[in-house]
């Protein structure tokens, strides 16, 4: 019996201690981690979508409430004076999540460009979309009334050959972005001014 209690006490103390330690490390590194994610995953994607802006989309980012989730929005002012936003969505089709940064021109309601943000360790998934500029450039210039499904599903997007599944996940993410944009546009415009 004494041995039993001893065992339970040691295990409890140990796990409590480790939980506490981890919580402390987590809270110390939280801000830094967020900065790193911005710098290494989001910044390159935004740079790819808005090669030239008159402002700093990263510094001027703001959050918009979408149902119970906070959506991070990056505003961009283009050299020709029009306003644009970029935000990230994900296509959780089969093959796992593919994160997609979508840039939309607020004045024309058209897509400026999309970039895949997820870095997946599973070879093949997601990485193809990153390496294949012809695929992602199909989205550029398309209006908000376009069906972003792949052609096999009656949409307007040519799937990458040999990577149908990834193509579907990307088009799913684009469709989601369209829905979010249509729902939240008034809110986004309000916050940008």
């Amino acid at each position: 019996m004494r041995e039993m209690i001893n065992m339970i006490v040691v295990l409890t103390v140990l796990t409590t201690f480790s939980g506490g330690l981890l919580a402390a490390v987590k809270s110390k590194t939280e801000v830094q981690i967020e900065n790193q994610v911005l710098k290494f995953q989001k910044a390159p994607a935004i740079k790819g979508i808005f090669p030239e802006t008159t402002n700093d989309p990263l510094a001027e980012r703001f959050n918009v409430k979408n149902e119970n989730m906070e959506l991070q929005v990056f505003p961009g002012k283009l050299p020709d004076g029009s306003k644009a936003v970029a935000f990230e969505t994900s296509g959780t089709g089969f093959g796992g999540a593919v994160g997609l940064m979508v840039g939309i021109n607020l004045d024309k309601d058209t897509i400026i460009g999309v970039r895949v943000t997820t870095h997946s360790e599973t070879p093949g998934i997601g990485s193809r979309a990153k390496d294949d500029p012809a695929f992602v450039s199909q989205f550029s210039g398309k209006g908000m009334d376009t069906n972003f499904g792949v052609k096999a599903d009656g949409g307007a997007i040519d799937a990458m050959s040999g990577a149908t599944v990834t193509s579907k996940a990307v088009s799913l993410a684009a469709t989601q972005a369209k829905e979010i944009y249509q729902k939240l546009k008034p809110e986004i415009v309000k916050q940008m001014n």
């Binding site: 981890l22 490390v25 987590k26 590194t29 830094q32 981690i33 790193q36 994610v37 710098k39 290494f40």
Partner: peptide
């Protein structure tokens, strides 16, 4: 966590 923060 440390790697995420300092060597992303």
């Amino acid at each position: 966590l440390l790697m995420q923060a300092y060597a992303y």
